[in-house]
């Protein structure tokens, strides 16, 4: 599994603000860095298939050898994590995981219980997500994404709201899972520590290696 950005250019009012031509290997993390407003999040929105209409994108995006450039968000199979966990507040923890779990899985309860255990949350399925700690919520969000069997991950400042200790823990958890599943990851961040921990190439939005 790999994610290929082929001459991907994002224009605003005709001026390029993002230009990348790279392949992200399975289990590799491409870190995109830059100050706020440089277009990092726009890049992720574009990859997720939710580019706001004021922007235009050129180039092509391939995932796993399949072109996804014009696919709608739900058909891309790219999991997303934001700095907020965005757990659905109306569903229980298990409900959130079930929402992510692909249809057709036979033992749904078992799969959810396994995921909870893997995240150190065994027995917490019935809980209201609002009653979990920040670190627990972040792990539920990640497990929810992994249960949807994504072919790649997009991280939008995913660790920036966690405190230092939790951040290191969570990084290890996310990158470890990505490697274990062989998922290509694109991470945008303004924190060099995130990029160092990821271990992969670090570029700015115009593709210059940092």
């Amino acid at each position: 599994m790999s994610l290929r950005l082929e001459n991907l250019i994002i224009l605003r009012d005709g001026a390029p603000m993002v230009a990348l031509d790279r392949t992200v290997a399975p289990g590799e993390v491409l870190s995109v860095m830059g100050p706020s407003g440089c277009g990092k999040s726009t890049l992720l929105a574009c990859l997720a298939g939710a580019l706001p209409p004021v922007f235009q994108a050129r180039g092509r995006v391939w995932l796993d050898g399949r072109e996804i450039t014009d696919l709608p968000s739900h058909a891309r199979r790219l999991g997303m994590l934001f700095q907020d966990d965005i757990l659905f507040p109306h569903l229980s923890v298990a409900g959130n995981l079930g929402f992510g779990l692909a249809r057709g899985v036979r033992d749904r309860a078992g799969a959810i219980e396994d995921a909870l255990r893997e995240a150190g949350l065994a027995g917490m399925g019935a809980r209201d997500p609002a009653t979990l700690s920040g670190g627990q919520r972040a792990r539920v969000a990640l497990m929810r994404t992994l249960l949807s069997a994504p072919r790649g991950l997009l991280l939008d400042e995913a660790f920036s709201k966690l405190d230092t200790e939790l951040r290191a823990q969570m990084r290890g958890f996310v990158f470890g899972r990505a490697r274990a599943h062989g998922l290509p990851v694109v991470m945008v961040t303004h924190d060099i520590e995130d990029a160092r921990a990821a271990g992969g190439p670090v570029v700015d939005v115009m593709g210059r290696v940092l």
Partner: peptide, 15 residues
């Protein structure tokens, strides 16, 4: 928060 919709879509949910 439109991100909830984007997350749901990235999990494979149709509009």
């Amino acid at each position: 928060d439109a991100r909830a919709g984007l997350v749901a879509a990235s999990l494979g949910a149709r509009p």
